[in-house]
Simulated assay, not measured.
Amino acid sequence: MIHFDPRVLAPAAVAILFSGAVQSAEEEDASDTSDRYGSVSGSLLLSSNYMFRGISNSNNRPQVRGDLNWSHDVGLYAGIWASNTNFGGPGNSMELDPYIGFAGDVGETPFSYDIGFWSYNYPGSESDLDYQESYLVLTYKVNKFSAKPSFWYSDNYFGKDFLNGVSSFAYDLTLSYEFPLNITLSGVVGRQTFGSSADELDYTYYSLALSRTCSDFSFELSWHDTNGIEPFLADPELADGNVVVGLTRNF
């Protein structure tokens, strides 16, 4: 039988208790620092296609996407979003999008809001395709169900070298339900519209997705389609019934 000497165990116990207290204090300090200065998060996505409102922006090829976000408890957030592209003419192989916004709950109700500004930039393109959108996203969530209408407005869609001076307004509704085992089923239906001088380009987009989250990873299988796409806006093959698989790592 093995015997333990209390004179040995006592200092060890004190050391364990002290280290626990130090770790707790460090965690509390980290929490205080996070509360004071906000927190940083991000994600990395590997996907079989880059879909944007029903249209492939990667020419039906794989996408690698990253996002780095800073947020504060008061509701303010800002970040940078980046992806490869194959869309927008010669030299364009990258999209780099800074954004800023403010989000919060509406009192004690099941409603929340997110309002912000998103800038789309294509640094390698030989054409001027950069543009910006202001957005408003509302969310109604009860238990495992959520409904999320969103609204996006731009005063110059896709920059000076595409639809110069033409405004755009996109609106959609996302419905989702969370099942056991962290499985979520969601659907989106939306409408992309343009100013009166280009209203013949208006089209409808929709998608259906099934996703599962496990720890810091999430897997998604989705289907995207459109109705009313004009060849001037996009090759119909890039907007016709695309099935996409993606794996995201959150950190």
Rank of each mutant, 00 (worst) to 15 (best):
G246D: 11
A239L: 03
D199M: 12
T193F: 05
F194N: 01
E220N: 12
N121E: 13
F158G: 00
S24V: 15
I183L: 13
L233Q: 06
A15D: 14
F117D: 10
A209P: 12
D67P: 03
S19K: 10
D5G: 10
A10H: 14
G42R: 06
S71T: 12
T184A: 03
D155K: 03
E108M: 11
D199G: 11
S167M: 08
P110S: 04
R61L: 10
V40K: 06
Y77S: 02
W81P: 00
G116I: 02
S119K: 07
Y157V: 10
Y122I: 02
R36P: 08
T33V: 14
K160E: 15
S197R: 15
N57A: 06
N49S: 09
A198M: 12
I115A: 08
G75V: 01
S31G: 10
I55R: 00
H72W: 03
G75P: 02
K148H: 04
F169L: 11
N143F: 12
F251W: 14
A198I: 10
A25M: 13
T248S: 06
E230T: 09
Y77P: 02
I55M: 00
G54W: 04
Y131R: 02
A12D: 04
F151G: 00
H224C: 03
N250W: 04
P62D: 05
S211R: 09
Y140N: 07
Q132L: 07
G66Y: 08
M51S: 05
D35T: 12
L138K: 05
Q192A: 00
V142M: 10
P62H: 05
F169C: 03
K141Y: 03
L17E: 15
L136K: 02
L46M: 13
K160S: 15
N250A: 12
P231F: 00
G246W: 07
Y135A: 01
T184N: 07
S186L: 06
K144R: 14
Q23R: 15
Y135M: 01
R249D: 10
L138P: 02
D67R: 11
F169T: 02
N156G: 02
W70F: 04
Y153R: 04
L68H: 02
A239I: 06
